[in-house]
């Protein structure tokens, strides 16, 4: 059973990569959007651009993973192809994890490109690769899982896209992407610690050799803990569509 699930997860992720990712919606939301935003901040203050790189990478993680993840499950439910997957010897949680993995791999590829481009073009030398990977991998899984959860919370594709913008923009403004958390009012600071992107930004910042607000081990632990916390309700909500 576990072997069939693993096989299903792998092939569903690959299939999703082929059918959904590297398509215009994923590209525009996953790459163009964070780059355009960062570019706007760069044009405003080019001298401190290096400080924005962790935020740029974190935003790429957030948008590249959620771009299609909030769409694919409801889309497949609508055209009936998700049922096709359910008729194969793969469990429902296996199918969901396969879809989350597809978003994660796409996010990893896009994030790797953006990170490498930033490091090379700015000549950043104090990057701690192991820390970066330990932060990026759980972050990619967290935001891909978040996308899946937001998707199954509603029934329509457009509803999920609209719903996803609320946490995405909230996180962009409150999680230290542009404004350090330490400068936020106490109430907003509390909210920021409840949002996963805070730990991603903080961890990436430390991986780039800057000081962080939280110990990097805590960043990693929180992100790893969030993965099942997001996947479990997403699986339950998806299962309710097949009662």
């Amino acid at each position: 059973m576990w072997y069939e699930n693993l096989r299903g997860i792998y092939h569903i992720a690959l299939k999703d990569m082929k059918t959904y990712y590297f398509k215009p919606p994923a590209i525009s939301w996953g790459i163009v959007f964070p780059v355009a935003w960062i570019l706007a901040f760069y044009l405003r203050n080019p001298r401190n651009f290096e400080e924005l790189v962790p935020g740029l990478v974190a935003m790429t993680v957030l948008f590249s993973t959620t771009a299609m993840e909030v769409v694919v499950i409801n889309f497949e439910l609508r055209i009936g192809s998700l049922e096709r997957l359910l008729l194969a010897p793969v469990s429902l949680s296996g199918i969901l994890i396969g879809k989350i993995l597809g978003g994660t791999i796409f996010g990893l590829m896009i994030t790797a490109v953006i990170t490498l481009a930033s490091v090379v073009s700015l000549g950043l030398s104090s990057v701690h690769i192991i820390y970066l990977l330990l932060i990026l991998l759980p972050s990619l899984l967290v935001f891909s899982s978040l996308g899946a959860l937001l998707c199954v919370l509603v029934k329509e594709v457009f509803e999920a896209q609209t719903l996803a913008n609320l946490p995405r923009f909230l996180m962009v403004f409150l999680c230290g992407v542009f404004v350090p958390i330490s400068t936020l009012p106490p109430v907003l600071k509390q909210i920021s610690y409840a949002l996963p992107l805070t730990y991603t930004v903080d961890g990436i910042r430390q991986s780039f050799g800057s000081a962080g607000d939280i110990a990097i081990a805590i960043d990693i632990l929180v992100l790893v803990a969030l993965i099942p916390i997001l996947i479990f309700p997403a699986t339950k909500l998806l299962a309710r569509r097949f009662v």
């Binding site: 082929k18 059918t19 959904y20 055209i79 009936g80 192809s81 049922e83 096709r84 008729l87």
Partner: peptide, 10 residues
């Protein structure tokens, strides 16, 4: 199934 539900993109 009643609906022909293969993947359009493949």
């Amino acid at each position: 199934p009643e609906q022909s539900n293969m993947y359009d993109e493949l």
